[in-house]
């Protein structure tokens, strides 16, 4: 009897510890896509759907010859260099320079929350008495485009610190969001971008989750401009007939945390262009 109890207790402990952490999740996703697309090298996933869509890729490469996001990079550089009303500027908030997109999202232990780049930019503005930027459309995309361009080639390396259980909770929250069906159409992120990746909805090939975060902000032909990752989250939620959640709210930030962690090891290549 005692033996059985001990075995049961041990089993319970292993069941708890066996709960997959960020690295186990990432490896499972890699294994899944490798089985699905055996000929696609890992680094290709940074190119989003074009890693698995040879026809769309030709068109995309042609667009990249004259990148539609270029003017936004220039406008962003001007923003970066222009002093605020108090004489300070972004440079004072981010002394290591604009090549810093790989530092986000990160766990902010002091505030107990996931810090994203757009949030950090607005914190800088607010600290200097400037008006914060909107999180989906408009000038935030200029400064993000400039920072992304300066950060090209940096490797994603999101850490979920073990010394703060709230960090793992935020990661888990993002993971749960990813796997939860929502909206009247009852899709989860996973339904389209994991289970059915590579298949077509109408003429659109469903993109893989790995690499979803590498190229932001994105110039979308559908938008006719550059937009943020959280704008895309909203759009996706809208498509499945779920009410979009707040851009830079906790849910989307945690989702970004989870998604970016899954893309660890991939190179940043924003801004980018998509259909």
């Amino acid at each position: 009897m005692k033996k059985i109890l001990i075995t049961l207790a041990l089993l319970a402990i292993t069941a708890v510890t066996a709960q997959a952490g960020p690295e186990e999740d990432r490896m499972a996703f890699i294994k899944y896509y490798k089985a699905k697309f055996p000929s696609v090298p890992m680094e290709e996933y940074a190119n989003g759907v074009y890693a698995i869509d040879p026809i769309g890729r030709e068109n995309w490469e042609a667009i990249e010859e004259f990148p539609p996001y270029e003017p936004f990079i220039d406008a962003g550089q001007a923003m970066w260099e222009k002093p605020f009303a108090n004489g300070k500027g972004y440079k004072d908030c981010f002394p290591d320079g604009p090549a810093m997109a790989d530092k986000y999202p990160s766990w902010d232990k002091q505030q107990g929350m996931v810090m994203t780049l757009p949030l950090a930019l607005n914190n800088c503005l607010k600290a200097n008495g400037e008006k914060p930027l909107k999180y989906k459309k408009g000038p935030i995309n200029n400064i993000l485009a400039y920072i992304a361009f300066q950060s090209r080639g940096k490797v994603i390396n999101v850490e979920v610190p073990k010394d703060d259980p709230r960090a793992m909770a935020a990661y888990e929250d993002g993971k749960k969001f990813y796997f939860t069906r929502r909206g009247q159409l009852n899709f989860s992120c996973a339904t389209c971008h994991l289970q059915n990746t590579g298949l077509r909805v109408r003429t659109e090939i469903l993109s893989p989750t790995l690499g979803h975060v590498t190229g932001w902000p994105v110039y979308r032909s559908k938008w006719g401009t550059v937009g943020t990752l959280h704008r895309r989250f909203s759009g996706c939620n809208n498509n499945i007939r779920a009410k979009a959640l707040e851009a830079q709210g906790e849910e989307y930030r945690n989702l970004e945390y989870f998604l970016t962690s899954l893309s660890n090891g991939l190179e940043l290549n924003g801004p980018s262009a998509r259909k």
Binding site: M27, A28, K175, F179, R182, L194
Partner: peptide, 17 residues
């Protein structure tokens, strides 16, 4: 109901660890 019925995270069977 849709959300409450999914209050526990369930990793789908097609994702193998």
């Amino acid at each position: 109901e849709q959300q409450v019925s999914q209050s526990e995270l369930k990793i789908p069977s097609y994702l193998k660890y």
